[in-house]
Computed example of a mutant assay.
Amino acid sequence: MISEGYIIERDGSDLDFSVLQLSKKGFEYLKYDLGFLKENRFAAQSVAHDYWGTAFQLGEFAINPRPDVEFFTEQELQCSDDSLLPDWVPKSRDHFPDGFTRIKNEKFDSVFAIEVDLNLKPLIRYQKSGYYYDGLDSRTDVVFWLCDGFRLMERIFECLNSAKLRRFETHHFVLLDDFKKLGWQAPVRSGREKNKTVREIYMARTGEDPGQERVRPGDGTIQEIFLSKKKSPWVSKR
């Protein structure tokens, strides 16, 4: 598909490897199978930002997909008409998170929001983000902030804290370096579930023992899938 121009290879300024992306030709080929699109968006505005957002959101679910887990990306949110959004995806256009993940449990649904910050933005934007999450229903009970650096994490934390948010405890911070080294075993540095790992927080909502490792030998790890510098794609041995 690369040789035919449906997929292109791109380099990110903050990545040590190239990534694959749908080309305009590939998008034109697929778009009529995607349903109604409010906007024709397909290219990453920031390769590194979108890559880490995808890697963090999919995580171990890319290795072991689950029928009780659903994803909705920023691209989908930007391109979809409000009337076509799933009922669990917030309809507000006041802010566009980098992704939503829903875990359906027998007792309740949990919705996770993903925010990826590689550089500091104007502080008013973080306050507006906080107010946006304050306005969502209780299903969105965890907001993960993946931050490139401890100081950046502190600034965002301080900004949200100063906004006197009603649901400040839903905001959970993870360092990008921790994620690169540990995948979903990365610790949460602040929030209601501080000192737990990302994996423990996700798995607790699936009704499974968070200590029960789902990744089987030979299936690969988050690091092997998303951080490998090999040119050949990762293939499951299942």
Rank of each mutant, 00 (worst) to 15 (best):
G5V: 07
I7V: 13
I8V: 14
L15N: 10
D16S: 15
F17G: 14
F17Q: 14
V19Y: 00
Q21T: 11
L22W: 07
S23A: 05
S23L: 02
K24R: 14
G26D: 04
F27C: 00
F27R: 01
E28N: 06
D33I: 02
L34H: 09
L34K: 08
L34D: 04
G35A: 06
F36P: 13
A48K: 08
H49V: 10
Q57I: 05
L58Y: 11
E60W: 10
F61L: 15
F61S: 13
A62M: 09
I63H: 04
P65Y: 07
R66T: 14
P67I: 14
D68W: 09
V69Y: 04
E70I: 03
F71A: 06
E74W: 04
E76M: 11
L84Y: 10
L85P: 03
L85S: 04
P86N: 10
K91A: 13
S92R: 06
R93V: 08
R93T: 09
F96P: 06
D98I: 05
G99M: 06
I103H: 01
N105E: 08
K107P: 05
F108T: 11
S110W: 00
F112Q: 01
F112V: 03
I114A: 02
I114Q: 02
L118C: 08
L118P: 00
N119T: 12
N119P: 04
K121I: 10
K121M: 14
L123T: 13
L123Q: 13
I124H: 10
Q127C: 12
S129Q: 14
G130F: 02
G135F: 02
T140L: 11
V143Q: 02
F144P: 00
L146M: 13
C147D: 07
M153T: 03
R155F: 10
R155T: 15
I156M: 08
F157N: 15
C159Q: 10
L160D: 08
L165Q: 03
R166T: 04
T170M: 11
V174M: 02
L176P: 01
D177P: 08
F179Q: 03
W184D: 10
Q185I: 09
P187M: 02
R189K: 15
G191S: 04
N195Q: 12
N195Y: 12
I201R: 00
M203Q: 00
A204N: 01
A204G: 00
T206F: 00
G207Q: 00
D209T: 00
G211N: 14
G211C: 07
Q212H: 14
R214C: 06
V215Y: 05
P217Y: 12
Q223C: 12
Q223Y: 12
F226H: 02
S228H: 04
K229F: 05
K231A: 01
P233Y: 11
P233K: 12
W234V: 09
V235W: 02
S236M: 01
R238T: 05
